[in-house]
Simulated assay, not measured.
Amino acid sequence: MSLAFNLDEEVRLATTNADRERIDELANLYSLVLSLNYLERAYVRDSITAAQYAPACTRLLAQYKTIIKLVGDAVPSLDAFMQEYRMDCTAAAHRLKVGVPATVEHAAEESGSGGAETAKWVAETTQNFITFMDALKLKLRAKDQLHPLLTDLMSGYTRFKNSNEWEGRPKILHWLITLNQMRASEEITEEQSRQMLFDVEHAYSEFFRSLSSSH
């Protein structure tokens, strides 16, 4: 028995609408990871400014969260997806793991800022600390409750260029990564909550000691 093939016939990757949608979603995820990798490399090479980088990175991270929900079980993990499609995108993988732009992950070099602007940053960061600690004390445990608050805290915290020297910075970043890797409905344990509160309270005290010593 022989099979006849029509070489002029278009090869179809999908035969149903569901298959087509799944392939489109996987293609979108692939292109997003590539785009983010190019963006990260451009920022590291100073090909773009922080002002250009930050909003673009934030947008891609938000799109990733949407796409990863759409692909569902088709992508068990980002590492598995990148391995399957032979993607060498370590910069994008790190950024997606952290979940915030590099401008938030690392301390900014804003030494030239005026007193009024610095005072505003101090007030905002103080409020972010208090809001997050109150959330833990009020028994908020879900990722979708805590992650936005901790992201705001980290964004303000890293505006201060000497935050790279603070012991609290890697601890806050650790918890930010931990939350980022959880599903939206997942919750931290009671033990994690206590440790998180302890670490954030320590960082809060250190933050104020540093401000006092700089004057």
Rank of each mutant, 00 (worst) to 15 (best):
G72E: 00
D73G: 01
A74H: 08
A74S: 14
V75A: 05
P76V: 04
S77A: 04
L78C: 01
L78M: 10
D79C: 00
D79W: 00
D79P: 00
D79A: 13
A80F: 11
M82K: 06
Q83L: 11
Q83A: 11
E84N: 09
Y85S: 10
Y85C: 02
Y85E: 03
R86T: 12
M87V: 09
M87C: 05
D88L: 10
T90I: 12
A91F: 09
A92F: 01
A93T: 02
A93Q: 12
H94D: 13
R95L: 10
V98Y: 02
V98R: 03
V98S: 02
G99T: 00
P101H: 11
A102Y: 07
T103M: 02
T103K: 12
T103Y: 04
T103F: 06
V104L: 04
V104A: 07
E105I: 07
E105H: 12
H106I: 07
A107W: 04
A107Q: 13
A107R: 09
A107V: 05
A108E: 14
A108H: 04
E109V: 14
E110H: 10
E110D: 12
S111A: 14
S111D: 15
S113N: 04
S113K: 12
S113L: 14
S113F: 04
G114C: 04
G114F: 04
G114Q: 06
E117N: 06
E117K: 07
T118L: 09
T118K: 03
K120N: 06
K120G: 02
K120D: 04
K120W: 08
W121E: 13
W121Y: 10
V122A: 05
A123S: 07
A123G: 03
E124F: 09
E124K: 12
T125E: 11
Q127S: 15
Q127V: 03
Q127R: 15
F132R: 08
F132H: 05
M133P: 00
A135Y: 08
L136G: 07
K137Y: 03
K137I: 10
K139I: 03
R141I: 04
R141E: 03
K143Q: 15
D144F: 06
D144P: 01
Q145L: 11
Q145V: 05
Q145A: 13
H147K: 15
L149C: 05
L150C: 00
L150E: 01
T151P: 02
D152N: 15
D152G: 03
D152C: 09
D152Y: 07
L153Y: 06
L153V: 06
M154T: 12
G156A: 08
G156V: 06
Y157G: 02
Y157C: 08
Y157E: 14
R159A: 03
F160T: 09
K161V: 10
N162F: 15
N164H: 11
N164L: 11
E165G: 06
E165A: 14
W166K: 09
E167P: 00
E167M: 10
G168T: 05
G168I: 06
G168C: 02
G168P: 01
R169S: 07
R169G: 01
P170C: 05
P170R: 03
